[in-house]
Design a protein around this nucleic acid. Structure first.
Length: 465
RNA sequence: GGUCCCUUCGUCUAUCGGUUAGGACACAUGGUUUUCAUCCAUGAAAGAGGGGUUCGAUUCCCCUAGGGACCGCCA
């Protein structure tokens, strides 16, 4: 048995969406689980729509989420000559023929079929005509001579046996009238030449598989195994597309979803291993199999993505989290000044507490990052005369503390609670507002200790007092 | 319209004919707490419908209904 080889074959006609990422993930995990190889093939034969920027975006997306392909990336457009050669071989073998129908003629037939509400299928007009019947001034397409009688069975590794009547598959075009190969030809030839053993792709490719299998058979190539995975649906149950919002990786990375979290989420979307929810990379390679892939489509659920991300924020190594946070801020927020970065790092253990995303952590740390605190009118209202007195009393005592610590602060604050005849809130809330500009936030001791002594002093004499 | 696929809590799913149908997220309630959170506990919540097969069906088969995908000289 040859070494397992899988591939992900996106076309660079738009940003990669997370359905594609999941397909790539499954292919990658399966190959790694089987000690095989995983390849990337860029299907750029649609010259009109393929863009270099999308090619880069796809590669960056895969890299971001941690999917590495083996070897060099395979560029389909460089292999066009090979595809054409196969088309001519099929012609020679009598498995393909030239069709001189014009695109307009075909369009017309389609339209009429639609009006009559009968299924359109190319009428195979040129299938058995002789070359001598060919019009001189017309450029033909080459069509594959599909099976007409009987049925075909696809032994799908996810869906089981799928049987289809051969006459529902038309004589599809393999070479356009401009001489270029079409998708089904190119994909079949490439998969064969790349020695793919397993084709794992979206359910929307199932018909293509029946076509491609026929090409394999006509060329007498050894067939790979196929697995069609159910599609990811939007919340209203439709196939996810690039146009849907929150469908590309960038949509997630920019709000501070981490690659590990998204990878883990995608892994469990349509695949399961017992009751296990959290998978390290090694665990996912170890446990991944085709058997665990479900048959029904699944919907994208943002709250689960968020909670997965939250789980990783709270459980991952704090240094790693810090690295990711800085990377995130540099890319999507403003760069944090070096004197603040240190404070953020020291405070991460509580800044991360109420965060579901890196963006949340950034927001929680805003009070550290800003040079000047700003206040909302609403919060200012909470700081009445009594509160102002609390603040100034605290400040008076605070500046005399040499080394502020939780213990020394506690003494001061407990003293204030007594002398002002109030409760913790009566002291804590004004201080929190004065120091951070918000009545919400980390514990007051954490806030004070996360800022320098000078900074606390400065903020407490700010204009609200 | 044709072909094919799918159907367990709101969502992702477990169950390899016998379970009080389990878990996770979300939700609700209570508790801890220094605000907001966290955390802990508890709760509500599912086999689309109808036929078979079987001692016994969520599980196997058929029908119906609903949902989806494909139907390009795109990939």
């Amino acid at each position: 048995m040859s070494k397992v080889a899988t591939r992900f074959a996106p076309s660079p006609t738009g940003p990669l969406h997370i359905g594609g990422v999941r397909t790539a993930l499954f292919n990658w995990l399966y190959s790694k689980n089987q000690n095989g190889n995983f390849f990337l093939r860029i299907e750029d034969t649609d010259k009109e729509r393929s863009k270099e920027e999308y090619r880069k975006q796809i590669i960056n997306s895969l890299k971001w989420i941690g999917i590495n392909f083996d070897g060099e990336e395979y560029v389909q457009s460089k292999k066009i000559e090979d595809h054409i050669k196969v088309a001519h071989e099929l012609l020679k073998r009598g498995s393909a023929y030239k069709c001189y129908c014009s695109p307009e003629e075909i369009e017309d037939q389609k339209k009429r079929a639609k009006q009559k509400k009968i299924p359109y299928i190319y009428d195979r007009k040129w299938r058995d005509k002789k070359e001598t019947d060919a019009p001189k001034n017309k450029k033909p397409v080459i069509r594959f001579k599909s099976k007409i009688d009987g049925t075909s069975i696809l032994k799908d590794l996810v869906q089981g046996d799928v049987e289809i009547e051969n006459n529902t598959i038309e004589d599809f075009v393999i070479i356009r009238n401009d001489g270029t190969p079409t998708y089904n030809l190119s994909a079949a030839v490439d998969d064969h030449q790349m020695d793919m053993t397993h084709i794992i792709r979206g359910d929307d490719h199932k018909i293509n598989t029946f076509k491609q299998i026929q090409i394999y058979q006509a060329m007498e190539w050894e067939l790979p195994s196929f697995a069609h995975i159910p599609l990811i649906h939007t919340i209203d149950g439709k196939k996810l597309s690039k146009r849907d919002k929150a469908s590309t990786l960038d949509d997630y990375s920019k709000i501070g979803i981490m690659p590990v979290a998204l990878r883990n989420y995608l892994l469990r979307l349509g695949w399961s291993y017992k009751d296990k929810e959290i998978f390290t990379l090694d665990e996912s390679i170890k446990h991944f199999n085709l058997k665990g892939i479900g048959k029904s489509p699944s919907k994208l659920d943002m709250s689960r993505i968020l909670s997965m991300n939250e789980h990783y924020i709270k459980n991952m190594n704090e240094n790693d989290l810090f690295d990711q946070l800085i990377k995130y801020c540099n890319q999507f927020k403003k760069e944090i000044k070096s004197d603040k970065i240190d404070k953020i790092k020291r405070s991460l253990s509580f800044l991360k507490n109420k965060a579901k995303t890196l963006e949340d952590i950034f927001n929680n740390g805003q009070y550290i990052i800003v040079d000047e605190v700003s206040f909302s009118q609403e919060d200012l209202k909470l700081v009445d005369e009594k509160a102002k007195k609390v603040i100034s009393d605290f400040r008076a005592q605070f500046v005399n503390i040499d080394q502020p610590s939780r213990e020394t602060l506690e003494t001061v604050i407990n003293g204030l609670i007594k002398s002002h005849d109030t409760n913790f809130k009566g002291v804590g809330q004004p201080l929190r507002i004065a120091l951070t500009g918000s009545k919400f936030g980390p514990g007051i001791y954490d806030i004070i200790l996360s800022l320098s002594k000078e900074e606390v002093g400065k903020r407490l004499e700010a204009k609200i007092i």
